[in-house]
Amino acid sequence: MNPFATALLAWFDEHGRKDLPWQHPRDAYRVWLSEVMLQQTQVVTVIPYFQRFVAALPTLRDLAAADEDTVLALWSGLGYYRRARFLQRAAQICVAQHDGELPRDFDALSALPGIGRSTAGAILAQAHGLRFAILDGNVKRVLTRHLGIHGHPGQSAVEKLLWQHADALTPADRVADYTQAIMDLGATLCVRTRPQCDACPLAATCVAKRDGLTSQLPSAKPSKRVPTRDTVMLILRDAQGRVLLERRGPQGVWSGLWSLPEASNHDEAWRTAQSLAQIDDAQSLPSFVHVFSHYRLKVEPVLFDEATAHRRIADNAGHRWCDAGERAALGLPAPVRSLLQDL
């Protein structure tokens, strides 16, 4: 075993995380679900979502057979909802083509929707102990610092180099523990700011520590101006306290989720509201900004209270009046759910 893996595993035996909910049992379905949830999201945030998800859908077959609204409701708040749809689509393919199991073949596994090279490697390494490397954000940070690799890790040439090192350093023995260990190191010690180098088992051979580069590596992503978009969200609430929700189309962010009707300005908001219900008055609520990875959305909510539903809404599959209990069972974008909860 190489010195890098030896030192890392010795540290893991004493300090590693061994009681995460997806580790008991550490089967392929639970590992896969956790890996997808952990993309762009910290462990402390994921744990309650994971527990709620597997309580409702304990097996891959349960996920494949579930109603999409159920899946999105369980996912609501994690963001990047495309991940949830890919999960269910992959589960359905596994039921149809792989006897209801995630395949143990790397090529077949990585061909499933939403499962890239690193996720496939993590599933095979942690669930089956097979020697496959991973390269998530934490691992990229550990390797770029330890090896002194400059350039943004998302650039193809840099990422290719990191994959070469990740594969070379992955041991043949205890691969499941090694995979967890290198993720743990990046999540607990080799963090983005103020890494705890004095406690790191790899400090003696770390180029970034030696050369004083821990604040510079990994190299930052080239900056790009993030645009701001504006929208008016319509809260049509009837005398029973129900709110009118609208299912979004298949394109764009929040695709397929239930959300609030929107308009580009207040005049259009009035016209849209009148087309959906009988209304008398409107109240502007405090605006807020929701930040996506590629733009900022400035939301101006407008409340139309005591609205009376048009009869045709009852026959419209794209709209529905929902009380708080009914909303809880639907996939709603996190800012919309928070807005309605605070109303």
Rank of each mutant, 00 (worst) to 15 (best):
M1S: 13
P3E: 08
A5S: 14
L8D: 05
L9R: 03
F12N: 07
E14P: 02
P25R: 12
P25H: 08
R26P: 13
R26W: 15
L33I: 13
S34W: 00
S34P: 05
V36P: 01
V36W: 07
V36A: 02
V36K: 00
M37P: 02
T41G: 07
I47N: 01
P48Y: 01
Q51L: 14
V54P: 04
A55L: 01
A55W: 07
D62A: 09
D62W: 05
D62S: 04
A64I: 03
D69Q: 08
L74V: 08
W75Q: 02
W75T: 02
W75L: 05
S76V: 05
G77M: 08
L78V: 01
Y80E: 05
Y80R: 03
R82M: 07
A84P: 02
L87N: 13
V95G: 06
A96C: 07
G100R: 07
L102M: 04
L102Q: 00
D107S: 13
A108W: 11
A111P: 04
L112N: 05
S118P: 01
G121K: 06
I123A: 03
A125R: 03
Q126Y: 12
G129Y: 07
R131S: 06
L135N: 11
G137C: 10
V139K: 04
K140D: 10
V142K: 09
L143M: 09
L143H: 09
H146M: 06
L147H: 13
H150Y: 13
H150F: 15
V158R: 05
D167W: 12
A172S: 13
D177L: 05
Y178I: 03
T179K: 08
Q180L: 11
L185T: 01
G186Q: 03
A187H: 02
L189D: 00
R194T: 10
P195S: 02
C197G: 06
P201D: 03
V226R: 10
T228D: 04
R229G: 07
D238A: 07
R242C: 11
V243C: 11
R248C: 05
G249K: 12
S255D: 14
L257F: 06
S259H: 10
D267W: 12
D267A: 06
A269P: 00
S275G: 12
A282E: 07
S284F: 12
P286M: 01
F288L: 06
F288I: 04
S293K: 00
Y295W: 12
V299C: 04
E300T: 15
V302S: 09
F304A: 02
A309E: 13
A314M: 10
D315H: 13
D315L: 09
N316Y: 10
G318F: 10
H319W: 14
G325K: 06
A328R: 14
A329W: 05
A334C: 10
A334P: 08
R337K: 14
S338G: 09
Q341N: 13
